[in-house]
Write a protein that binds this DNA or RNA. Structure first.
Lengths: 199, 199
DNA sequence: GTGTTTACCGAACATTCGGTCAGTTGACAA
DNA sequence: TTGTCAACTGACCGAATGTTCGGTAAACAC
């Protein structure tokens, strides 16, 4: 007789990681403030109080999720490819990597982009995000002054419009149906760097 | 004397309109779900219960705000300039008008773009919004097949990236400091239609 | 077997939520 | 002077909120 069929032997069981990933999913569906611990409990298949065995509370869940997104962005900025070479090439690389991170860590970045600063946790995340934005903005300015980007546009404005397009990916991208991160980045760079209009 | 026509002398105080515009401001600062009626009361300088003298409740406030944004978009779509002429020109016009509406009705559109469908009110707004998106998406497809827009990009994808850029305006535009809606639209169309890169 | 740990439940906590209602105020008309 | 009425207050309601805590069944270690 087959000694031990290990299926369903072990009790299901959550850990902080699985709680986080499921919670972030619900946060993105209903919004952080619109999500109650009861909602999370239902999604996890446990009672409210069980959540507190794995994580300290709702806000910690948010903090961990936001860090996961921000850490990705800052790891990229630290890469030498973000600091060496022609600014236009660095910008293209940063845009491409941003799309990659956004797709890889989709739920976490989605959550980050919806943060409004309602708590200390959110304000801290906003400040880190602004630091990233400043980095990119500086890059665009360099690209303009190096002649890689047309000079008849305001660099700060272009940065915002460009990353508005990048960040919008969180609003509609579905990993199952959409193309790869590279395909996305190709389309985005074609439009913003090359232009849509047929000459 | 036919002076029975009531001279509209108003006492100091609020009306449904002023309550709405202040409420939408708070909704955009803290998020709809993150805003309590107590928060609104504080911003209005009255007690919670005074709000109910002017409006039926919190969700009605949201519904009215969302309609104000959506009505603007659908009025534009109904204009003949959205339906007649080369698709590339119609698209440019729609983008330009979208920017204009977004700037004119900034707080209302901002609120609309953050709706996730948590209630019947929100779901109804989402459905109207999707209808608008479908209109624009169709316009891009036409522009591709008419040869106005390069054919090596997926029309649906381009629509999303393009309007991701447009919609991002709500995330950072400040009427006091930023340029006019026309300036914004110029920069946006320069980037997306003409391309950033110097040839 | 016994003891320990893991993962959870159910009840309760104080607080806040959106909303109701009887009553008050003060500007105005008569 | 009196009455009207728009605009508002303050007390309150039941429900929902995030969180705590005592207890417990199952899995594991010995």
């Amino acid at each position: 007789m087959a000694a031990s069929i290990p299926t369903r032997r072990r009790r299901r069981g959550h850990d902080p990681e699985s709680v986080l990933s499921i919670a972030v999913g619900v946060f993105n569906e209903r919004g952080y403030d619109g999500t109650s611990m009861e909602d999370l409990a239902r999604a996890l298949g446990v009672t409210k109080s069980a959540i507190y065995y794995h994580v300290p509370g709702k806000e910690q869940l948010l903090a961990r999720a936001l860090d996961r997104a921000l850490d990705g962005l800052f790891e990229m900025v630290a890469d030498e490819r973000a600091s060496a070479g022609p600014a236009i090439d660095r910008l293209e690389w940063v845009v491409r990597q941003s799309v990659r991170i956004l797709v890889e860590r989709l739920p976490y970045v989605t959550l980050l982009l919806r943060v409004r600063g309602n708590s200390g946790t959110e304000q801290a995340a906003l400040e880190r995000r602004r630091e990233f934005d400043r980095f990119v903005s500086h890059l665009v300015k360099e690209a303009v002054s190096e002649g890689g980007i047309r000079a008849d546009v305001d660099p700060a404005l272009v940065t915002r419009l460009l990353f508005g397009s990048v960040n919008s990916i969180t609003e509609w991208y579905q990993p199952a149906r959409g193309g790869s991160a590279d395909d996305l980045a190709d389309a985005l760079l074609t439009m913003t760097f090359g232009g849509l209009r047929v000459a």
